[in-house]
C-alpha cells in the first residue's frame, strides 16, 4: 500500500485514491480532422516505463482533487507530486526522459 502525499490533504493511504493513468495527456483539438491513427494514439497509446512514470491521481475519498505524481515503477518511490496543469519538476522530468 502506497502512502500518497495529496498536495492538499497531506499523506494518505493509497486506498483513498484513484489512479487515472499517465499524466499530461492533452485531448486533441479539431478532432474532426484527426486521422483514425492519431485518434487511436490519443485514446490508447501510453508509456509503460521501467523507471519514473508521471501519473495523475485523484483523492477520491478526500478532497476529490486531481493532481500529478511522479512514481518509480520499480521501487514505488514517489519522487514528486505537483498540481494539475503544472509541468513536472525539473528533477523528475530529466529522469522521466531517461527512462531505463
Amino acid at each position: 500500500m502506497l502512502l500518497i502525499p495529496c498536495p492538499f490533504c497531506g499523506p494518505r493511504d493509497e486506498s483513498e485514491f484513484g489512479c487515472g493513468g499517465e499524466a499530461h495527456i492533452a485531448r486533441p483539438t479539431d478532432t474532426d480532422r484527426l486521422s483514425d491513427a492519431d485518434w487511436a494514439a490519443y485514446l490508447f497509446m501510453r508509456k509503460n516505463p521501467k523507471g519514473v512514470h508521471l501519473e495523475r491521481w485523484v483523492h477520491r475519498l478526500g478532497c476529490r482533487r486531481w493532481f500529478n505524481l511522479a512514481r518509480s515503477t520499480v521501487s514505488h518511490e514517489i519522487l514528486a507530486v505537483y498540481k494539475m496543469g503544472d509541468p513536472p519538476p525539473a528533477s523528475v522530468a530529466g529522469q522521466e526522459a531517461r527512462r531505463t
Binding site: 490533504c9 494518505r12 486506498s15 483513498e16 475519498l61 478526500g62 478532497c63
Partner: peptide, 10 residues
C-alpha cells in the same frame, strides 16, 4: 477534521 474512508464508506 478529515474526509476519508470509514468501513468502506466515505
Amino acid at each position: 477534521c478529515a474526509q476519508t474512508g470509514l468501513a468502506r464508506a466515505g
